[in-house]
């Protein structure tokens, strides 16, 4: 075990996969010689050479499409899109082709690839470099969508994504790359896709979040516990497939829930979670489920970022609402 950042954990997981799986290939803009814009692939080209760690031209549609062909042809590509906004030019390949080849070919062709996308705000950059469009990928049947919030989960979920027989969109919260550290095994391991993680057990209230918002969720929970509210914290980790069972078990126990995400509210993934809760937990609920989310607007530049991003204060206000209902 050693203490590593989320960025280091991803780097080590990629290194293990390249070393242990001959069919894994890492590909993207600046991932080779430079080691990636966020240095997630740092040192991999030196160790595994330019045939396994491939620099591409700036051509996101091409990266996704070629990765798709590589996967159909028998490789396991791990593609990097530098920022969430840069994945939009690749939508055609991802949504029209990657997500559908298994179905379209009646299972004769598959696309076991991973699309890594650094995403989310809190880094002071405007729109294309800060937004959270996970709902668009979740709304695309055929794709799995995974979001780690801890170094250990990042390494384990990435390995699971690489080994997964279906295409996985792997979202990496930029704000957490170097701001969280924990003990992570030095050898390769997997963390199952499709399982949420109950980070703290509690009986009064469930806070549900994923990605960078786990930081605010944990801090709000700590403040609530101090006030005597026994708060359960659930890291969804896997948006598709969603661990409905864990969500339901938690909310049936606490009877109160808040969903937190930094994407805009309307048709955000929180809406799906709230729908699942009302369908399966209605008679356990003590209060309407609250959402604390980004607003329905274009992601703002730095000076309004703190207004846009859900804060601990906003989660506490929502907690006050559900607790006093």
């Amino acid at each position: 075990m050693s203490v590593v950042t989320l960025a280091q954990a991803l780097n080590r997981s990629l290194e293990h996969a390249l070393a242990e799986m001959d069919d894994v290939v890492v590909m993207g803009e600046d991932v080779g010689r430079t080691g990636g814009v966020f240095r997630i692939t740092d040192g991999l080209a030196d160790k595994f050479g330019p045939d396994r760690v491939i620099d591409t031209p700036v051509a996101e549609s091409g990266i996704a499409g070629v990765g798709f062909g590589m996967a159909v042809g028998g490789l396991r590509p791990v593609l990097e899109m530098q920022f969430m906004g840069f994945s939009y030019p690749a939508f055609d390949q991802i949504i029209n082709h990657v997500a559908r080849i298994r179905h379209r070919s009646r299972h004769r062709f598959t696309a076991p690839l991973v699309i890594r996308i650094p995403y989310g705000g809190g880094i002071g950059a405007a729109e294309h470099h800060s937004e959270s469009a996970e709902a668009i990928y979740c709304h695309t049947p055929g794709l799995k969508v995974v979001v780690p919030s801890r170094p250990g989960d990042a390494a384990g979920l990435l390995r699971s994504a690489i080994e997964d027989p279906d295409p996985v969109v792997f979202l990496e919260p930029i704000r957490l790359y170097r701001s969280v550290k924990e003990d992570v095994p030095d050898t390769s391991f997997t963390t199952p896709i499709g399982a949420a993680s109950v980070e703290r057990e509690g009986s009064d209230l469930t806070i549900i979040a994923w990605g960078a918002m786990m930081k605010e969720a944990r801090e709000a929970a700590a403040a609530l516990v101090e006030q005597g509210v026994d708060t359960e914290v659930l890291d969804v980790r896997s948006l598709v497939p969603l661990d409905v069972e864990s969500l339901v078990a938690s909310v049936q126990k606490t009877g109160r829930a808040i969903v937190v995400h930094e994407a805009p509210r309307t048709v955000g993934f929180g809406a799906e979670i709230v729908a699942q809760i009302q369908q399966r937990c209605l008679y356990h609920l003590q209060a309407p489920v609250e959402r604390v989310t980004g607003w329905d607007t274009i992601f703002p530049l730095k000076r309004s970022e703190h207004v846009y991003l859900p804060s601990v204060e906003r989660i506490l206000a929502a907690a006050n609402t559900v607790l006093s209902a």
Partner: peptide, 20 residues
Amino acid sequence: KGGSMHIADVDKGMLGANGI
């Protein structure tokens, strides 16, 4: 609202810097 990468000025015929 846009910062360095999204400056536009239609009166000057500048249709916009572009992050993509």
